[in-house]
């Protein structure tokens, strides 16, 4: 109940701050671009759009939202209600997940791209969005300004996105298998590519481990710097 209240508020908050309009415009433009691209490029373009923007949007936006809530002392008033910290965090994460999933669905529908076995793909899309938002939250807990957040998070953002080089066939190293993004790219690519079951299972395990570590880290940082700011 408290979670649903917080989630509802976060969605309305994002709506009033124009996120949904911004992504509506972007989604339409992505669809148009996909339709204009030559047949052979549509599928890789879709994967890159999903990977770099649609699934990563939480990473991009969460910093400013938490900064604004911290700046206006809203976090303080939230944490003197019975709202639990994990409910607060979950609401933030789920609200971005919703925006990601809806945009992704619309883009796939509009670009008429699909696949036979969507299960792995959907898991990959969801966990990709979750992990990006969690990474954003790690930095959002302490950043002082939006630029501060961007600079700190962008370095990590670029770093964890490196496995895209392997996806494009430009550069690969076994080290990439530690990255959560290697796993998300594999799962997103199951839509059109063939992967061994072992690779898919590796990806799921990789994402679950990252998800667990990041969740604990985010919880600890928010408890320390946002719920009990000194």
């Amino acid at each position: 109940m408290r979670l649903l209240t917080a989630l509802g508020q976060d969605i309305r908050f994002q709506f009033r701050h124009g996120f949904y309009y911004a992504y509506l415009v972007l989604t339409i433009l992505y669809i148009l671009s996909l339709r204009l691209l030559p047949e052979s490029l549509v599928y890789p373009a879709l994967i890159i759009i999903l990977f770099t923007d649609i699934c990563a949007l939480g990473f991009f936006f969460i910093g400013a939202i938490v900064l604004l809530e911290r700046g206006q002392n809203l976090t303080q008033s939230l944490f003197v209600t019975p709202l639990r910290l994990h409910e607060y965090l979950l609401a933030k994460i789920l609200s971005f997940l919703l925006l990601s999933i809806v945009s992704a669905f619309l883009i796939m529908l509009g670009g008429s791209v699909g696949g036979q076995d969507l299960l792995w793909f959907i898991f990959g899309a969801i966990f990709s969005a979750l992990i990006y938002t969690l990474f954003g939250l790690v930095f959002a807990a302490r950043a002082r300004h939006v630029n501060d957040y961007f600079v700190k998070s962008l370095g990590i953002g670029l770093l964890i996105s490196l496995p895209i080089l392997a996806y494009l066939g430009l550069f690969d190293t076994p080290l990439f298998y530690i990255f959560p993004t290697r796993a998300t790219l594999i799962l997103l690519d199951t839509l059109g590519g063939d992967y061994a079951l072992s690779e898919k299972l590796y990806s799921v395990a990789n994402l679950l481990i990252w998800f667990t570590i990041l969740s604990a880290w985010v919880y600890q940082r928010f408890d320390r710097y946002v719920r009990h700011p000194v």
Partner: peptide, 21 residues
């Protein structure tokens, strides 16, 4: 320092916080 959602009305703010209890 008053801490309220500035893009929401007075009533929306109160309704929102009330639902946590």
């Amino acid at each position: 320092t008053p801490n309220l959602y500035t893009k929401f009305t007075a009533l929306e703010n109160l309704d929102f916080f009330a639902q946590f209890y």
